[in-house]
Structure formats: C-alpha cells, structure tokens
Simulated scan of single mutants.
Amino acid sequence: MSANPFLDPTLVHGDLYRGDGRLADRTHALHRAKISGSDVADTIAGLLAARVPAGADVLDIGCGRGTTTLRLADRLRPRQLVAVDASAALLRTTRDRLGATGALGSVVCADFHHLPLPDSAADAAVAAFCLYHSPTPDLAVAEIARCLRPGGAAALVTKSLDSYAELDHLVQAAGLDPDATSRPSLYESFHSGNLHTITATHLTVLDIQHEQHVFHFADATHLARYLTTTPKYRITLTGGILALATTLKQRLAPPPYTARSTVSYAVAVRP
C-alpha cells in the first residue's frame, strides 16, 4: 500500500471514488472557501477554444463529476464529446448532468493508461486533476497523445506539491495527526514542478500557466467539512464533523483558516 492515498489503487478504486459523495462534498467546501483564483473549468475551456476547430472531437479524461465536461460542451460545441473516468459512480453523475442540460456527450468507463479509443480519434483532450493518481503519469500522457490527431491540443492540469500545506500545520497543531506535516503531498506524482517535463515526453508544450488560489474557511465547521473529505491525514477522532469541529475550535486560534494552492495548466499539441 502506498504512503500516498492518491497512489494507492485499493483506495482509488475503492473508498475514494466508489461513490460521488466525497468528491462532491470536497468541491463544495472548497468553492465556499475560495476567495481568489479563476474558475478552472472556464480557464480550461478558454485555453482550448482558440486551438480547437468548430465541430471538433473532444475527450475529457478523468472527468470526475463532469464539471469541466459541461463547460467544454457549452464553450466548444464539439461534434463529439467523450467523458472518460475509471469510476462508474462519477460517470453516472456526469451522464446525468449532461442529460439535465441537454448537452450532447457520451461516457466511457476506462483506465487512462489504456483508453479504449482508436489512434488519432480526437482533436482535443483534457486531463484535469487526475494524472496525480498515476505512479507513471508519463504513460498516461503517451496514451492521451496516441488518441490525439497530429496537431491536436491537450490541456493537462494539476496542483503544486505544497497545495493546502497550511492545513497540514493546523491538523498537526490541533493534535489530530502528529505526522500531518511530514506526510507526502497528494500531488507528488504529477505536480506543478514536473508538469512541463512529463507533458513534454510525448507532446510539444506550447504554454505553462500557474495561478494561485486562496481559500478562507470561515469557521471550524467549514474546515471540518473539508478535512473529512481529504484522505491525506490519519485522523482517528470519532463523532464525525461535529466532533471534529469542536476539537478544532478548542485547539486552534480563531478563524478564518487560510490555505493556498497553485493550479497549473499545460497546453500542448501532438507533433
């Protein structure tokens, strides 16, 4: 079992993404806390819009709950949009959200190391906040490149190694996980620092952008709601969000609790 939960296949294919609740709760807590930084799905769609022809074939790999999928459908108006994820539960959510908006798209359950798609199938591909689940992200990038037509564009998105590091110190200071600050970054496999190098193994990098996002958790309950969604820490406290919030309130300085994350975007093309 990997020391990094994001690289532990038992967790990735089990508790982390067996349902969509954890990811939905995590996203909601972060969106409530966010005070600075652009909308990631909008940014991705904008980066591709200038490079993707009308009526393009587009892949959203590691689509999660489909937020970026919906934005791609709206902004790019693709001829064919295929959302790919290894989690059947997340794909059901994506399919339902596409259906609710009337957007055209299909879903495919697959591992991004082995995409069940022909060579040169797409004009554009997105892989956002997913490649750090791979111990060999270069192989996943090779598979993305295989599925792109020559000249096809890819947007690969990840976070910095030190994203949310402030929360490591808060969790440790509260006595909830004495090793919080020494645990590996969830993003150690594919992060802002190696984004260019790994992308360039199989694609021609056109641009790399980094943007800092800032989050203020308004109170102990808000912070607790987020902490219950992250697998990084070993918090053994029982009693759920209420007990966690009570402990945080008792042991930490008054809120707000601030955290930062760098979101990094690579735009690249298949030679």
Rank of each mutant, 00 (worst) to 15 (best):
L90M: 12
L186P: 11
V40Y: 01
T158L: 01
V126T: 13
H133G: 05
A124Q: 05
D119P: 07
Y187C: 07
G239N: 01
R75T: 14
S261W: 03
T101F: 04
F129H: 13
Y132H: 11
I235P: 06
M1P: 12
L139W: 04
A24S: 13
T181W: 04
G193N: 07
R51C: 10
V263H: 01
R71H: 04
S160G: 15
D57F: 14
R95Q: 11
T197S: 11
I144Q: 09
T197L: 09
L81S: 08
P178E: 12
L91T: 00
G62L: 08
H169C: 11
D219P: 04
G175Y: 06
L131Y: 02
T199Y: 07
A224I: 10
I235F: 09
D25W: 12
R51K: 11
N4E: 01
A224K: 10
Q80N: 12
Y226S: 03
N194T: 06
P256E: 01
L176K: 00
I198R: 03
A268K: 04
S185I: 09
G14V: 03
A218M: 11
Q250K: 12
A124N: 08
F6P: 01
R270L: 08
V263G: 01
A268V: 02
A83M: 02
S36M: 11
V205D: 09
G46A: 04
A155E: 05
L148T: 10
G105C: 01
V171G: 03
S264K: 05
L242R: 12
Q80V: 13
F112D: 13
G21L: 12
T181R: 11
P5Y: 07
D179K: 08
R51D: 11
Y164V: 14
P231A: 03
P271T: 08
C63W: 09
G240S: 04
P254D: 08
A41S: 14
A56L: 06
V171C: 09
D111I: 12
Y164Q: 14
H169F: 15
P271E: 10
L23D: 11
G152R: 07
D179H: 10
L70I: 08
R51S: 11
D207C: 12
L117F: 11
R18L: 05
G64T: 00
D39M: 02
P178G: 09
K232A: 02
C147N: 11
L81M: 03
L252H: 04
F217L: 00
G55D: 13
L227R: 01
A145I: 00
P254C: 06
D8S: 05
L161I: 15
F112Q: 14
A155F: 02
P184W: 09
Q172H: 12
